[in-house]
């Protein structure tokens, strides 16, 4: 209870500020309508009702977004082309595939980096460089190139997801696999243990907490990648497509609903990793 209260207070403050901002930003349209109709602009009460219930507001009010979210998830069949669950699943499937690909790639690169001097010196600068390129610039090229070899739909989006999510995994895993100190490595040496034993018995278990920290960043990055990957596909399906079509038609309520859906999905995915993390650390005896 004493944890819920502060959270609730902050949420209420945000919602209140949001309403104030909605009134402020949507006011111009109300005044404009009044002057065109040649009538007096409404008083404060009228202004508020007129600003927070517009069909295409500059900033939709919270209840409008909530209603749209409700209508497009619970309020319609999941097979509907307007259902956020339908679009959300398309995005999530690309996110999960890309996340899996990115995680595997990240772990493999990290293992290579710690065992091979040439990879140690050469891979990391390229990995860093890859992340300095704006994903918005490279995503259409990936879509176009893959389309020319007959790949479309899920896989190109997943590759863009993987492109974003492998990086935190590489960084975290390199740090994790290198986390055992010299004494622990010396101890294995006194057993005459080889690199393989050091990897399986020491480096890999030691890296697990680092891996989960990276996975949390990685899965959020994957979702961003999948959404960005949906933008240049001509707005067929997915949360990204919903955002794009909303902006084509000035459907700000739809954009905000899709934004919130994406945020909820991201929070859910990160929470899932958190559950897996707690379970894994508990099984390893590292959760206290």
């Amino acid at each position: 209870m004493n944890r819920i209260l502060p959270v609730l207070t902050v949420v209420l403050v945000i919602v209140a500020l949001w309403y104030v901002a909605a009134v402020g930003m949507n006011r111009a349209w109300v005044y404009d309508q009044a002057s065109r109709a040649g009538v007096e602009p409404p008083g404060l009460g009228g202004l508020i009702t007129a600003t927070i219930n517009q069909e295409r507001p500059v900033l939709p009010a919270p209840h409008q977004v909530a209603a749209e979210l409700w209508k497009s998830t619970v309020g319609m069949a999941v097979t509907s082309k307007r259902s956020l669950i339908y679009h959300g699943w398309i995005t999530v499937s690309a996110t999960l595939l890309g996340f899996a690909m990115g995680t595997v790639l990240g772990v493999v690169l990290a293992v290579g980096i710690i065992h091979n001097r040439a990879m140690d010196l050469s891979v990391m600068p390229w990995a860093i460089a890859s992340q300095t390129i704006p994903i918005l610039a490279i995503a259409p090229m990936i879509i176009v190139v893959l389309n020319s070899v007959g790949l479309q739909g899920l896989v190109p989006k997943a590759i863009i997801s993987a492109y974003l999510s492998f990086f935190p995994v590489v960084v975290g895993m390199v740090k994790g696999l290198r986390s055992p100190d010299q004494m622990q490595l010396d101890l294995l040496k006194t057993y005459n243990a080889g690199d393989a034993a050091a990897f399986w018995k020491l480096r890999l278990p030691a890296s697990v907490p680092y891996l989960f920290a990276s996975l949390k960043v990685g899965i959020a990055a994957s979702l961003v990648g999948a959404i960005v990957g949906e933008l240049p596909t001509g707005a067929v399906a997915g949360l990204g497509a919903r955002l794009l079509s909303g902006s084509y038609y000035g459907q700000t309520v739809q954009i905000w609903a899709a934004l919130f859906a994406a945020a909820i999905v991201a929070a859910g995915l990160v929470a899932l990793i958190g559950v897996a993390e707690r379970g894994a650390l508990k099984r390893m005896g590292m959760a206290r």
Binding site: M183, D186, L202, A206, M284
Partner: peptide, 9 residues
Amino acid sequence: FQAAGLYPW
């Protein structure tokens, strides 16, 4: 060694 260095897992 000076520290026990037991594996926590």
